[in-house]
Design a protein around this nucleic acid. Structure first.
Lengths: 206, 206
DNA sequence: TCATAGTGGTGACTGTAGTCACTGCACAGG
DNA sequence: CCTGTGCAGTGACTACAGTCACCACTATGA
């Protein structure tokens, strides 16, 4: 397995060797579904390259939980793996990605043997928790225009680009609102000169 | 220290002994502030009896994060303690409480020595994360009447009572809305026969 | 005793965003 | 070629909740 070990350099080198020995590397094309609700988790993912979107669904509405970037893992999978409970979330690639799949049966062993592996997941939990807090403060304090603009901004940052190709309906899903509202607000942002829209692509200007 | 060890029975007995040896027990009256924003965390709390409210503040608005019930701990303090960063939250007792204070310098040792202590915090993180998800779905899907009613319901459940003594303004804070709105909605819930109000006390009827 | 602060109740107004209904456009497949 | 499907744009309407400006009641203590 010819993986760039730098991505895992924050872990104990011995642990990295052990992980690489037992895990499998999977290359997943953009847009593929990795995990569905109710599915049991047999392998814990660590994203080496690319971007994975994690979301859940309430009554037809989709709610974006977080993005897994390179060298991050998925706390929801971690929980499901530890407790052997079915997944409550969906995961889908947003770009072509390389994902390392750690078999769950080794997880307790590694956690015991290499205590600093715990830290990785504590940090991830904390990160995800903070992100949710941000989402909530956004919901409570900001209006749609600011929420939508910020959402686009983080999307472009994650993609290292100043443009996103996404439909209004999809954006509406991710923000828990309706398509018409997104259309309207995007129009306003456009006349305000903050974004531009062309051929299904949204560009951030300022 | 004459503490009922049953409350900590989910932990390794040896660990419990070690914890009891090094920790101090604090009895805190109802309504006392335990932790402020920006304060450094020198002792990690485990609540033995009572109820502690954890909340944060954005721009004058208070946001309820979670309640710490008996035999639970505080993940925000845990994080602040591990990283030695100042607290981002406030904590306040909602009832007379007995709190065990674990000195943070022992934390890394215990976590290493007794790996199942990690599980306690993973479980707490997961619990808090799920609670935030519930909050968000509430914000996205429900109107004020349902949000307020459910909020009162969980409050009474936590207090093992069917009545709560709380001002409309305080409720407004906890839900991130305005006092007048709470007054209005409570009135509606009252005429619908779901609650009753007497002398500053709100009773859940159905 | 009166002043004051804290709380609760209400009517009137307003803005945001969710919904409905419809149009137009592009593109793929029969 | 037409047709169906998915996406975008828009005007009209509505309802919820946030805000403002009041008034009333109760406790507290100076």
């Amino acid at each position: 397995m010819e993986i760039d070990k730098k991505v895992l350099s924050f872990l104990n080198p011995k642990l990295v060797d052990s992980i690489l020995k037992e895990s499998t590397l999977k290359e997943v094309p953009k847009g593929a579904e990795i995990l569905r609700e109710q599915q049991y988790v047999k392998a814990l993912p660590i994203v080496l390259e690319g971007l994975v979107k994690v979301y859940s669904r309430f009554e037809e509405k989709e709610l974006l939980l977080y993005y897994i970037e390179s060298s991050q893992s998925c706390v929801m999978s971690f929980y499901a793996a530890r407790k052997n409970t079915p997944s409550k979330i969906f995961a889908q690639t947003e770009e072509d990605s390389k994902i390392l799949l750690l078999p769950v049966e080794y997880l307790p062993i590694w956690l015991k043997e290499y205590p600093d592996l715990n830290d990785l997941f504590f940090n991830q939990y904390n990160l995800r928790y903070s992100e949710l807090l941000d989402t909530i403060s956004h919901l409570l304090l900001n209006k749609m225009d600011k929420r939508l603009y910020d959402h686009l901004k983080t999307k472009t940052t994650l993609l290292n680009s100043n443009a996103v190709k996404i439909s209004h309906g999809q954006l509406a899903n991710e923000l828990g609102t309706a398509r018409e509202v997104v259309s309207r607000v995007l129009k306003k942002l456009e006349t305000d000169g903050k974004i531009s829209q062309n051929a299904g692509e949204i560009k951030i200007i300022s």
